[in-house]
Write a protein that binds this DNA or RNA. Structure first.
Lengths: 338, 338
DNA sequence: CTTGCTTTTGCAATCGATTGCGTTAGCGTA
DNA sequence: TACGCTAACGCAATCGATTGCAAAAGCAAG
């Protein structure tokens, strides 16, 4: 009957015939307690099935051994699971965090009303925060970062940014993708994405720069707003096609958007890559498996997650860690021909 | 300067010129405090940027507003992220849980030494547990379930099972898949999977029953152990091919295994579905996108997750919720011909 | 002005661990 | 035996909220 009672440290103390102080220190491997006695107390605790109550421990120590991972992305329930990119990022972050002996708390933010970030921070549920994606919360992040240090953001590096961020070189990645399309002789390249999001607007910047460098006039009719979900992206692509605006290539700002575009093109009887070349962004797992396999700008998520968590732990230790930028790589597959 | 200080409830009490008791009740919308005063105190607290400290609250209330999601699956770091099935399941669970106003704590178990489950339970970090996959921990789960009620497991329903589980009808699903292959005229059907895992052994049961019903002799040489990772599955398929054992179909116990097998077959110059039909299990997102598109036994994860969380909340409320079984559906695509 | 009842409010104990500081035990030396 | 010193150990305060119980305040009727 030992192991299912709601055992407290005081019970263990009684069993071991010492004070709670001693039990606490023994379980924490505090050298104030002689080695053999420590082992003995640990054995007694383990045999009794005793486990430290983390709520009490967190309160007293003011730390939770937990990292919060926050997704401030959109309000609809479907968002989290719909995007393979975020899911993969989450998995990688979880690996890095648990490897360091911390727990992972998932925070989905559906209510971005004033002070949402402060509400998370002050709840003291976690010792540090990773924010995946800036969404439209640049200001809120900047403000929070002023007083809260253990915070790292995955996203683009923006001007006037106070918080620490890790992200791909969005401008360079987009530039590389569009340059590749131009190199294939494509001249009317459509851009699919939400300009309101910082990372996407950086990719747009790269798109524009590539066109300008090639001396090609930039046609606003080719810039199509497209959300991250497959359905809305499909719709956006269909409208582009039906608009009659001529185009011979698509630069999609995510793989999901690219895949949706490919399906929309196929439905319209347009050959990829024969008539239209398509390039995506992220290089998620499906990209290599699609038909045709998708050319995409690869973000090294494993490295990204490692960097994020490294920086976060530095900041938790009080050091001041700078933002980091990762170099993207263009992975060429069949979807753009050549 | 209000909102960045480490404000405590006592500070709010001072601001509002009432006692802490009153603040606590006001923030909890306790009708003991008159409506207008409640609003007033809430406003003062919000303006000061005060947020309740969850560690303290959890300790006192003995509840954390958190559900733990546990993956007891394998010890290597790569496991979590490698399997799209678990990732998708996690996303769906997270949706269901956060929708109910609870937080999600991810517990990756790397140390399954004696009492691992008890260590999680007694840490009191969560109010309830979802265990994704039984792995080889049937006994441990049974034992824990005797004294700990808010616990639901995703997995197969086994004989002598005490804990509450939700899962697909593995036997029926496998039966349907193999029946379909038999219907196509296939007679030498290989089975790829780890028999040690309960769910897989149930699928094996369905495989055997289908063969028996068709009057086909069951050849042990066609039963190949294969882990869930792509690389090891590829290796297993390659060995089957090289063994020279004749076969005209593969029933893979997961889509990842199926996709690995298809690639191994392609590498050996064997046509799918021309020479060999392949069926997978799970129907993950990639299945529809692969070349050729994969026939697979679909598990309705959205419904599964909803059911799991429903049952869990019932159990947390003290009701006794029974196990549930979901009906799988065979999604026929090109990989098995026909 | 009492009395009696209801509505508000606050005191103080409690949740279960950690830790600064003071006390005791143990041992060696004079 | 007395004294000094260090190594072990325990007392009690503390972390920040919640809540049972009792007291105070408000109000109406007698």
């Amino acid at each position: 009957m030992a192991e299912d009672g709601p055992l407290k440290m005081a019970d263990v103390a009684r069993l071991a015939k010492v004070s709670m102080s001693t039990v606490s220190r023994a379980l924490a491997d505090n050298p104030l307690i002689p080695e053999d006695r420590r082992r003995e107390i640990q054995r007694i605790a383990a045999e009794a099935g005793y486990v430290i109550n983390q709520s009490a421990r967190s309160l007293r120590m003011r730390k939770t051994q937990t990292i919060g991972v926050v997704f401030p992305l959109g309000h609809d329930v479907g968002q989290l699971i719909s995007d393979p990119f975020f899911i993969e990022m989450f998995g990688r972050l979880a690996d890095e965090i648990t490897t360091r002996g911390y727990q992972v708390l998932l925070c989905r933010v559906t209510d971005t009303s004033d002070g949402w970030l402060n509400r998370i921070i002050q709840s003291h549920r976690q010792d540090g925060l990773v924010i995946v994606g800036q969404s439209d919360q640049h200001e809120a992040l900047n403000h929070a970062a002023e007083s809260y240090h253990p915070l790292v953001v995955w996203g683009g590096h923006l001007s006037g940014q106070v918080y620490c961020s890790v992200g791909t070189d969005n401008i360079g990645g987009a530039r590389r993708a569009v340059d590749h399309l131009l190199g294939l002789g494509r001249k009317r390249i459509a851009f699919l994405g939400m300009l309101e999001l910082p990372e996407i607007s950086l990719r747009y910047e790269g798109y524009v720069r590539a066109l300008r460098a090639a001396g090609i006039e930039h046609d606003p009719a080719l810039v199509i707003p497209a959300h991250f979900s497959f359905e809305t992206a499909y719709e956006a692509a269909r409208e582009l096609i039906e608009s009659g605006t001529p185009f011979d290539a698509i630069f999609a700002t995510s793989d999901i958007i690219a895949l949706a575009a490919i399906q929309a093109l196929a439905a319209a009887g347009i050959d990829v890559p024969g008539q239209v070349s398509v390039v995506g962004f992220d290089d998620i797992a499906i990209a290599a498996q699609s038909t045709p396999p998708l050319t995409s700008v690869q973000q090294d998520l494993a490295k990204g997650a490692r960097t994020i968590v490294d920086l976060l732990f530095k900041r938790m230790a009080g050091e001041d860690a700078p933002s980091a930028t990762l170099l993207p790589k263009l992975v060429v597959r069949k979807s753009c021909g050549g």
